[in-house]
Write a protein that binds this DNA or RNA. Structure first.
Lengths: 189, 189
DNA sequence: GCAAATTAATGATTTATTCAAG
DNA sequence: CTTGAATAAATCATTAATTTGC
């Protein structure tokens, strides 16, 4: 329905739907079977991805009666959460890193952090990247709003805090995920 | 100088300079030596990268006399352009694609286009990605400005053109480079 | 004609905004 | 309502056009 047509920019889209259906993934129903690449050697219990955070994703199929299921060899598709949700430990670690000054971790830092946090559950590099990006932006806008209200209280004074983006520094070294990825994938050779 | 310190967000940066010195690259002076990965099997003449668009990058060192050069075994560093510049053919092809409706090509499209355009000279996927991103944005703002002036002429009427970003469509399929890269690099497994 | 100086285009990054899952 | 994910807008920085003084 939305898969083929012109968008606001007049762009014509005709794409392979299988490539872009990212909302929910349907997997073979193999409960308690971890991913092949799951490093099961860690001492901490890595919860089955379908039960992370205690959400039993099978429960939504309990209304199906067994006779029907058996007759057609029906197996309820396992709907796996489409987006990452940090475990409390992961969040704690990330916030600690942020508090200690990490804002835009380099690709290597991202990889390292990701590897560390995988001990606490499923996580990918892009999650770490997005987390810092969002956290930085939202802390900033939080402060901005505080400043606004403070300014309104005091009669619109322009008091430059230590966090006010003063004038914009030059020559910022690119540290973004995009930078890393571009250099890794697209630098042919 | 700018390489180590706190940026506007209070982030501490201490990075390997070699990773980020992207302003100008200095290569060994090997005139007429194409890049190793240069597909030299194509029938079309692929110009030496240093002479693309007819810029002889050695001419800037003609003031140096030979005796001095020979004495100290001086070889003029070949300054290679730090950013891609499309050849006329590449630009023609890209504009044709745009005219035909391509706006945000998928990763596969990018790879395909890049492969095609490599026939005309050095190019990378990210160049194609950025070209479409920039071209789309600048065509849009061009039209926006036209609209502004038109509205000013007619007394600020709100006449919704077919290109006015009406309300924002939902369910846009992610087609960006970032999407592609993220899925290729960070999808562990 | 020819470089240095200045301006205009545009390639490349970063930041702000938006969408939508939970 | 919070926040992970994605896109669009703004910005930076480099190269090409263009101008200017000689």
């Amino acid at each position: 329905m939305w898969m083929m047509g012109y968008d606001e920019d007049g762009e014509f889209n005709m794409v392979d739907p299988s490539l872009h259906e990212r909302k929910l993934m349907t997997l073979m129903p193999r409960p308690m079977t971890t991913y092949p690449n799951n490093t099961s050697t860690t001492a901490t219990i890595t919860p089955c991805l379908n039960l992370i955070n205690g959400n039993d994703l099978f429960s939504q199929y309990h209304h199906l009666d067994h006779s029907w299921r058996d007759q057609f060899n029906f197996v309820p598709p396992v709907v796996v959460s489409s987006r990452w949700n940090p475990t409390p430990e992961q969040l704690r670690e990330l916030e600690e890193l942020y508090r200690r000054g990490t804002r835009t971790p380099s690709a290597e830092q991202i990889q390292h952090i990701t590897a560390q946090l995988r001990r606490f559950g499923k996580i990918e590099g892009k999650n770490v990247f997005y987390w810092f990006q969002n956290h930085k932006a939202r802390e900033r806008q939080k402060r901005r709003r505080q400043m606004e209200t403070a300014a309104a209280d005091h009669g619109d004074h322009h008091h430059h805090d230590s966090d006010t983006p003063q004038k914009k520094e030059l020559s910022k070294t690119p540290h973004t995920l995009l930078y890393f990825l571009v250099h890794n994938i697209f630098y042919e050779k």
